[in-house]
Write a protein that binds this DNA or RNA. Sequence first.
DNA 1: TCCCAGGGGCATC
DNA 2: GATGCCCATGGG
Length: 294
Amino acid sequence: MKQVVKIPFPDFFSFQECLWFLDRSYDDCLHEVYSDSLLKLIRLQEQILLLHIWEEDSTLCVEIQNTNLEDPAPLIDYIQDWLDMSRDLRPFYKLLKADKDLAFLADKYVGFRLITIPDLFEALVWSIIGQQINLTFAYKLKRRLVENFGEYITCEEKKYYLFPSPEVLAQVQIEALRALQFSQRKSEYITGIAQLFSGGKLSHQQLAQLEDEEAMIQSLLKIRGVGEWTANYALMKSFKMMRCIPFGDAGLKKALESLKALPKSASKEEVQKVFAPFKGWEAYLVFYLWRSLS
DNA sequence: TCCCAGGGGCATC
DNA sequence: GATGCCCATGGG
């Protein structure tokens, strides 16, 4: 008998929107998305769990495929954090509806939530992979990285992977990544960041101890390969930092171009102007703007 | 063919 | 601090 953990939906939560985001017709190697459910391998404390997740009567059902948990509380925390289930979206929708160009987002994508990458190392490496290449190719590179260096379990003859650890990637030779079609620079950035993490010089916890968000961004900007876009993206995806805007993002510009008639060459200041009324909800506006692209 | 993708480093002025 | 160039591949 497999263990099923149940998590009631908060108001304005759409599991279908979660599925849409996790799929987006891209080939993500870290989960499998079906029409009404998904499979994902996670590391929770010292355990590796294969999760099957679906919805039933406004409840999220999380079935553990490969083991049993004595205490489901940490798993519930993990899922609620991952899918940002604890946030009250009403204030955000109120702000959206005050903007005639953006009001439709609140209805069309109601219940869409910020889906995070809880692990900071994964968030940083993924954002570096995604720099300046199309997402199809980015997912291809990620798959090669994960399948070559990630831990996995086998269930019913299928492999389910975790993102590679800093310890493993810190040891990988640049040439090995080059052979997987990573550029010379990205190979250097990724192994460099892996060495920072494995050497204890950077961690989610250390970053969280800094005094404020600006200090966290400045700290990340010192890392080779991390610029303004990457720092903001990683903090948004890993810390759910609501004030983060990945300036320069091509998709963000594209959405603002079509919905707010901003020019292609829109400056940082012009983008900030659109975001000004959304103080404290910037990351959500970014996420909804990306959502509007497809 | 050319340009652009969920950018960033680096040289140069 | 602003600008130009390079990186790697694939899709339009």
